[in-house]
Design a binder for these strands. Structure first.
Lengths: 121, 121
DNA sequence: TCACAAATGAAAATGATTTTCATTTCCATA
DNA sequence: TATGGAAATGAAAATCATTTTCATTTGTGA
């Protein structure tokens, strides 16, 4: 097991809190930081395990990593440019609760994402 | 450009209307149908272009193809035993639509899952 | 029958991600 | 300070889905 290299997290932050492993790597290279691609992958995975970042998939299948705020919210993601809007999920919360009750589920969480093309794309 | 090999579509149907290209290929092989992986990919792409099937991504990044018109539904998954209940997402559909409109997003899709512990777990 | 376009598929290429493994860095303790 | 082991690192190889290349086959209209 390995812990996250802090420079990976700070680079992800600098990238707008949203980038693929390859992008983080290229960015660090360009900035002259010496790091291996393997370490970038490991660090990102570790951050995902620790729930510090979320992982999504681009349309082409590439994984993109995103800093996660702590407030519970949902995302509206542009398939074109990757732009993300954090949105409230009032209706979702109620829906999840209702459904869980109906089927007798306890300790319930949920995920919900909306994706489409933003105005510019 | 190539048109879809009809056997690919019928295999996807037989697979429950939901499978990856590799799975469709393996299924056809197992059934003794002679087809190349390339043709499976091409056919599925063509079906996507014609909007006869949807394409989504598994968590591991593999593309999965789904017959359109399959009833759209969501899942209630047990964290303990993995049991899954297919549920309706009426409230979600409306929420997704409203949010997308509010931010000017087009061609919108969404994912939503609820997870918790079922009665037995 | 002929010619040509479309379809096919084997094999190679691509690209992200993971694994392997030898090396280096840390750190606690003798 | 020296030392031993655990954790971190990264280059290179392996993996795996997907795409591209290209030669061959098939189908079709003249």
């Amino acid at each position: 097991m390995s812990r996250s290299n802090p420079k990976v997290l700070s680079t992800l932050e600098r990238a707008g809190g949203f980038a693929s492993a390859q992008e983080v790597y290229r960015l660090m290279q360009r900035e002259g930081q010496s790091i291996g691609l393997t370490t970038v992958y490991r660090s990102l995975q570790s951050l995902v395990n620790d729930k510090i970042v979320d992982v999504l998939r681009r349309d082409d299948g590439e994984a993109i990593y995103r800093l996660c705020g702590d407030a519970h919210h949902h995302h509206l993601v542009c398939k074109g440019c990757g732009d993300t809007v954090e949105i409230e999920g009032g209706a979702i919360e109620k829906w999840a609760k209702t459904m869980a009750e109906e089927f007798g589920f306890r300790e319930v969480g949920h995920t919900a994402e909306i994706f489409g093309l933003c105005q510019r794309c």
